[in-house]
Design a binder for these strands. Structure first.
Length: 740
DNA sequence: GAGTTTGAAACT
DNA sequence: CAGTTTCAAACTC
């Protein structure tokens, strides 16, 4: 996060941005969210993440607003000549700093692209290239956003933002160089707080890649674009689109997949070639990773744009639906790690953390029915959900297979670490398709406990129910699966999507990560919950009766998290600590012991729920209270808190997003799935209610309902909680670097 | 590998 | 919403 955080002080006085900073717009934006505004803005701005635009849509009528923004963007784009003050002016004119901002950034993308592709004439690049296809693309994005806004699948949207940006920060100098050409312009356009030169460069670079795709790829046919527009959101989210990240420079063309519709486009990006480098790849990885997990279309798009990767993309000759199964597996063993990083051309850039890398897998792998090469070492299964718990700064590795499959490597989440006792730094998440035997299958889950690359064995569900781990993970079944009559495959995509939709309609969180980190939700509010050892928990909690939560029957246990007050388990002996952990930790911090281990009701939990439970923020139909207690009572809300966002969500979409707990999730993690799908907006809105307070517990359900107004005992508790939290020093392993 | 246990998911 | 059934993973032998 540090990297991402723009440091104005570091900006040279001569930096052109300084002028920009003086602008009212800049100030205004800055004021909106003092903390990391820049970052968030950028993140949210990611052009290829239509979902970002969704802030508006999320809170209001996504479609309209999205399009509106888009149009505005287009107009602005035309206006926005890189070097012209007009941009600034337009911003000033613009009522919304954010909306404009986004537009501006989008424009910036175009600009960047133009310049990169045509260095000679940077200023003209934008206009000259916008027409035609580019324009369409720009417009199209909004549409996509629209879908995302409405789709429950949005859950992941926020993730990519940081993911992308941050990696970019460490981007390749070469790339920066390219970006720099237009950097100045970009800054004028989109720069709000990102004054830091390097950051700016990276950011620009990121955009530029996207822009490259948009502008450089003449081959993109309109038809495809149209189809994408038509794509069902659910489809997008479900399908495991994969970014192809060919890293071989030798590859002349790169393929991007518009997974959103399961359709792919082939995009040649010669212009990006120079940029491709290990670092570059690294920078791009993150997005890629998320793309796989997230609602696809936007991300994929982005991924395609960003991921200049080597490795052959999985292309379909006839725009077939490209669906790939993605699996995340922790690969244990140093050699694996080494492989992962060495193979990637980029090992380097991320100074303090393992570099993310995209590597092409030498051994071709294929989708179900084809031979898969086994990876060396023993893999630890990591469900996508597991990513949610990953601490920021951890390297993410995406391994793109020749067949189009991707491997995503990522250090295990804290929870996983806790569960496994493994050194986070020694682990790499790798997709391992080679594990097919039951033994191996089990091994996958050994440490993380999170579901990982699933290989189901369904016999009656056709792999279209949540019983099926593949389906539940949003993956198509692949060869290693032993399922019968499987319908969870590209051939039945429609069915799969429809089923998914149905399930989501029943339970919007059905495909959400089962394990979430508390810190995610709370960080927003200035809490340090993530510093609590037991910072992860199961979304719904378990209901174990006989396993004492000590076996993998228990989802909490399996997920490597402790049981929480959400659990209805009996005789819980979960060693990961949540229930116990909370108690213990709190006690350590001086809080009086309030609850029993197995107690279903405990004030700490209640409090914790109120503060830490993103998952509490569930759809209205969920019995759990969505109200976030912290806001009203604590009075500690940061300026960026949800409440602060204020009524003008429209005006400040990004800000609003920023306040979203998702947004604050550590860079590479939670976003992927932690982000609840549609409910996010609702949640946020509710959270803003000033009346929300500490939740009351229902003995039976262990669910809490928000007290209405009033600072009763709950307030006290809450306060106690806060005090405790403040006094506690974060656990390094669990605490991602402070974003600030 | 077969059978049992377990608890989530689905159903009523 | 609670109780029951179905299901497949986890587990045991």
């Amino acid at each position: 996060m540090e990297l991402n955080t723009p440091n104005k002080n570091q900006i040279p006085a001569t930096n052109p941005l300084s002028q920009f900073e003086d602008s009212p717009v800049f100030n205004y934006i800055n004021n909106l969210s003092p903390i990391e505004l820049v970052k968030s803005m950028h993140n949210g701005q990611a052009f290829n993440f239509p979902s970002f635009a969704s802030p508006l849509s999320v809170f209001a009528s996504p479609q309209l607003s999205s399009q509106s923004d888009a149009r505005s963007f287009m107009r602005r784009d035309q206006f926005s000549e890189p070097s012209k003050p007009e941009l600034l002016q337009s911003k000033d004119e613009n009522d919304t700093s954010i909306g404009v901002f986004e537009a501006a950034q989008l424009t910036g993308l175009s600009v960047e692209q133009s310049e990169c592709s045509t260095p000679a004439n940077s200023s003209k690049g934008v206009i000259t290239k916008l027409p035609g296809e580019h324009m369409e693309l720009a417009i199209e994005e909004p549409d996509t956003l629209k879908y995302y806004c409405a789709s429950p699948d949005d859950n992941i949207i926020m993730v990519p933002l940081k993911a992308i940006i941050e990696p970019q920060m460490a981007g390749d100098p070469n790339e920066r160089y390219c970006s720099r050409k237009s950097e100045k312009d970009l800054r004028k356009i989109g720069q709000t707080g990102q004054n830091e030169d390097e950051a700016g460069c990276d950011w620009v670079a990121l955009i530029s890649d996207v822009a490259d795709i948009l502008t450089l790829e003449p081959s993109i046919d309109e038809e495809s674009a149209e189809k994408q527009k038509m794509v069902d959101p659910g489809t997008i989210s479900f399908i495991s689109n994969v970014l192809q990240a060919p890293q071989d420079n030798s590859d002349d063309s790169e393929t991007s997949y518009y997974a959103g519709s399961s359709q792919q486009r082939e995009i040649g990006e010669p212009g990006i070639q120079p940029v491709e480098s290990g670092e570059q790849n690294e920078a791009h990885q993150t997005p890629s990773v998320f793309s796989g997990t997230l609602p696809d279309k936007p991300i994929v798009n982005d991924a395609a744009a960003k991921v200049d990767i080597r490795g052959k993309s999985y292309q379909s000759s006839s725009k077939q639906h490209k669906i790939r199964r993605r699996c995340l597996v922790f690969e244990m063993g140093a050699h694996k790690k080494k492989l992962a990083f060495e193979s990637s051309s980029s090992t380097s850039s991320q100074s303090d953390h393992m570099g993310a890398s995209i590597e092409k897998h030498a051994t071709p792998r294929t989708d179900k029915g084809k031979t898969l090469s086994a990876l060396p070492g023993r893999g630890i299964g990591l469900h996508l959900n597991a990513l949610t718990a990953t601490s920021s700064g951890n390297a993410v590795k995406i391994e793109t297979l020749a067949s189009g499959k991707q491997e995503i490597s990522q250090p295990p989440s804290p929870a996983a670490h806790m569960a496994s006792g493994l050194d986070p730094t020694s682990m790499v998440v790798t997709e391992d398709f080679g594990i097919s035997s039951p033994k191996m299958k089990r091994q996958k889950f050994e440490y993380l406990g999170a579901s990982s690359c699933k290989r189901c064995n369904c016999k009656r569900s056709k792999c279209l129910k949540l019983y099926c781990e593949c389906f539940a993970a949003g993956l198509y079944c692949i060869e290693p699966c032993s399922c019968l009559e499987c319908s969870n495959n590209p051939a039945h995509e429609d069915t799969v999507l429809e089923t998914r939709r149905q399930i989501e309609s029943r339970n919007p969180l059905a495909f959400a990560p089962k394990v979430i980190r508390n810190s995610d939700s709370v960080s927003e509010f200035g809490e340090e919950t993530n510093k609590t050892p037991a910072s992860a928990r199961h979304k719904r909690g378990c209901n174990c009766k006989k396993s004492s939560c000590l076996k993998k029957y228990c989802e909490c246990f399996q997920g490597g998290v402790g049981c929480s007050s959400y659990c209805r388990c009996e005789g819980c002996k979960n060693t990961f600590g949540c229930k116990n952990g909370v108690e213990e930790n709190d006690l350590k911090w001086g809080e009086s012991k309030i609850h029993e281990n197995t107690s279903n009701l405990n004030l700490l939990d209640i409090i914790e729920k109120g503060e830490d439970h993103p998952d509490l923020m569930v759809p209205s139909k969920d019995s759990r209270s969505p109200v976030h207690p912290q806001i009203p009572i604590s009075g500690q809300l940061s300026g960026s808190s949800l409440c602060d966002v204020g009524p003008s969500t429209k005006m400040r979409p990004i800000q609003r997003f920023r306040t979203n707990f998702f947004y604050h999730q550590p860079k590479y993690e939670k976003h992927l799935q932690v982000i609840p799908e549609d409910e996010t907006p609702e949640i946020l809105n509710r959270n803003c209610l000033p009346t929300s307070g500490v939740k009351s517990v229902s003995p039976n359900s262990k669910r809490v309902s928000p007290p209405h107004h009033g600072f009763g005992p709950s307030t006290t508790w809450r306060r106690g909680r806060k005090l405790i939290l403040r006094s506690v020093s974060p656990s390094p392993s669990l605490n991602p670097p402070c974003e600030q």
